[in-house]
Amino acid sequence: MLNEYDVISKVGQNVLAGYLGLIVETSELQQGANSIESNGVGVALQIIGQMEGQFISTMSTATVKELVSRMMGGYEVQQLDEMCWSAFQEFGNWFVSGIATELASQGIQVNITQPLLHEGDVTYHSINNYTVVTMTSEIGKIDVYMQLEEAQTTK
């Protein structure tokens, strides 16, 4: 059975620690959540294929500036311009592509959609619970929400 926490943690470590050089601690919210409130920024992607679901990552504006700065090789980010938003989309793309690769290694073939961004007060509601993983590092807290279930067509 797929352990979503393990998959998110492994990919999060690969991207944040392995590539961006951050020291990351991960923790799972055991209760899960079926609604997500964000007053910062977020990136959302759909996962499609043999399993289907959503991935949403939220963080504060200060954290995304630090994240994007690291992705740009240390360039100081004052304002979130078009290039910063493109980088943040790419962060979502890297993360969920990593999840897709992990799923493929377990024999589950999926693809992903284009990343969508949000900024400001947003609440997502879902019928099913999300697995919630918080990754804490020197740039702040990054929350990852994911829900995956077997696709209807493959049942």
Partner: peptide, 27 residues
């Protein structure tokens, strides 16, 4: 150059004619 690094994707790329495959994020 793709973030989708699963074996099937690499094989598709090489079959299509790519000479190498670099997985994002890369150094």
């Amino acid at each position: 150059c793709s973030a989708m690094g699963q074996q099937g994707m690499v094989l598709d790329a090489i079959t299509a004619g790519a000479k190498d495959f670099v997985v994002k994020p890369f150094q």
